[in-house]
Design a protein around this nucleic acid. Sequence first.
DNA 1: CTGAAAGCGCTTACAG
DNA 2: CTGAAAGCGCTTACAG
Lengths: 347, 347
Amino acid sequence: MAEKVTSLQVAQLAGVSQSAVSRVFTPGASVSKKTEEKVRKAATELGYRPNVLARAMVSGKSRIIGLVVAYLDNYFYPEALEKLSNELQEQGYHVLIFMASRTAGNIDDVMEEILDYQVDGVILASVAMSSDIATRCQQAGVPVVLFNRSQDIDGITSVTSDNYSGGRKVAEFFVAAGHSRIAYIAGWQGASTQRDREAGFRAALGDAGQDLYAYEIGEFLTENARLAARRMFDVEPQKRPDAVFVANDHMALAVMDVIRFELGMRIPEDVSIIGYDDVPQAGWLAYNLTTIRQRANLMVAETVDALLDHIENPAVAAARKVAIDGPLIVRTSARLPKGWTPQRMST
Amino acid sequence: MAEKVTSLQVAQLAGVSQSAVSRVFTPGASVSKKTEEKVRKAATELGYRPNVLARAMVSGKSRIIGLVVAYLDNYFYPEALEKLSNELQEQGYHVLIFMASRTAGNIDDVMEEILDYQVDGVILASVAMSSDIATRCQQAGVPVVLFNRSQDIDGITSVTSDNYSGGRKVAEFFVAAGHSRIAYIAGWQGASTQRDREAGFRAALGDAGQDLYAYEIGEFLTENARLAARRMFDVEPQKRPDAVFVANDHMALAVMDVIRFELGMRIPEDVSIIGYDDVPQAGWLAYNLTTIRQRANLMVAETVDALLDHIENPAVAAARKVAIDGPLIVRTSARLPKGWTPQRMST
DNA sequence: CTGAAAGCGCTTACAG
DNA sequence: CTGAAAGCGCTTACAG
């Protein structure tokens, strides 16, 4: 039943050495036409395929990338995961996946496990690591790149959208539309994305001479976002904010449901709402949510590029901090400034 | 920089044999308290952790499960992926992921790649395999289980919801509500889920003395579902179906947008719509889609259980065909039969 | 309980 | 271009 075919068996059938077999299955190696033929013939006959694990052991390259991911209920991540995995596969790497969702807190343990697999690199999607473990990775020569999160650790590459500038754009849009009671529903404070979006938003509001009118925290969780929305809007109508920036679409959609179906308010007549990410659901017509787009394709491309650069040129590759600008996608959930039409904003 | 610590180094520092070190890191092995102490001390000092790949080579067990997944844009899958991955992690397995989305058609090549990693088992989520490759897996002693798809190949375990019965429930509900022009928008015909849902739906319709009033194919793709909805409903109002079963929620939500926002029809006053899966978005109040729930938790538990059973008892484990009954979740997108209230239906 | 030895399936210098 | 030999880092019988 378990009939593992080894390179030695192929070699014997082909009448060549084990080395010859190995060379046939090693892209750049030099083998004569004749040998190659004999080996291939024997290999197909026996159904031989090289054992990747054995190869990894001796070569020191596993061609496995560890990918840690959380928040799969936020549609931005499955999409990113799919793209990430596809690009890596195209480059001949495979992805060992680790869910951080349930294990939140002890990412470090997860990282140790990943390292045990002799991965060639690690991608942390919306997950932060301790500097201890970062050091361990560096010692082990395993490059790490942070996806959609940035962190001030020496030598760690990160790829995000330009969250600060995104936050600014939202504030500018609200102000241009004439809003004067502008609120914010924050994500999880531990996330750099949350902090940067809020900082940019507040800064641009300040530049316009306005203060934040109301502030609640939704932690990037739909249930908490609903609670935040109720605290913010379930008050005397004249005290309600007239515009709210929600730190990501995932929460913003839940907030819209509360505003419209629980409180009976109209969007954008009674309140404007803007999210962040441009997940597919934001474009669904029942929501039609104005939002800042995160360019997942670009972010993924940068992530893979940076990681492979570090893997293939460990000596020279330098850490990068990439922040990709994303456009404001103008839909109907937020009142339009004079002269605007629902379409992508060019800032 | 790359300071790999080996068991031999630990052994030397601890003053014991390499075997002793190995035993300390092998759960059931017999080691004296003294030895264990010395080894652990040396190991922490050196920062030693066993190389999983080396262990896999000699033991023949990689503790890696290959997971092939497609349709990540259908929210049912990210959710299943997360649960699957979590359960497997808890059992000490890790997941090597392969996206089938882009490589549709050549699942067999993907399977060969997976086998190269000496995986202990494979889960195919909403992906079908050729019987050739099934045979190869069997020869290699690698168990395979199909998740959310069933297939008539000897010895292959599959876990699905009871799609036939689900389809029946939808038809019975429509009929009970007094509908007489009942339509169906199909998924991809290659999927057993699609075929079984349609079969059950048609059968129950027949039992009630009705025929399918209209039929279109959406292939499980949102864009195709929109086109199907237009072909079906963008006709003279009196010729429109008064109820439609859409083969999954993913398509049903897109169909609702077309019906309401493009054609200006009301749901359920002008047309009732029911989906399948009960993805989280189906519960969002802007849609509030009546649907058949797939019990992801149970499906995942059965999948993991069956796979581990085959891995751990290769000699005795028998193939299983599991079909889990799922309830109709009654919301507001479909007209209620007399006496019904919006809540879970017990059938 | 413990150690010496063999071996998992490959690749990589080293000669030729 | 090709083969014999050593070795990647572990575990597993086998003695003791």
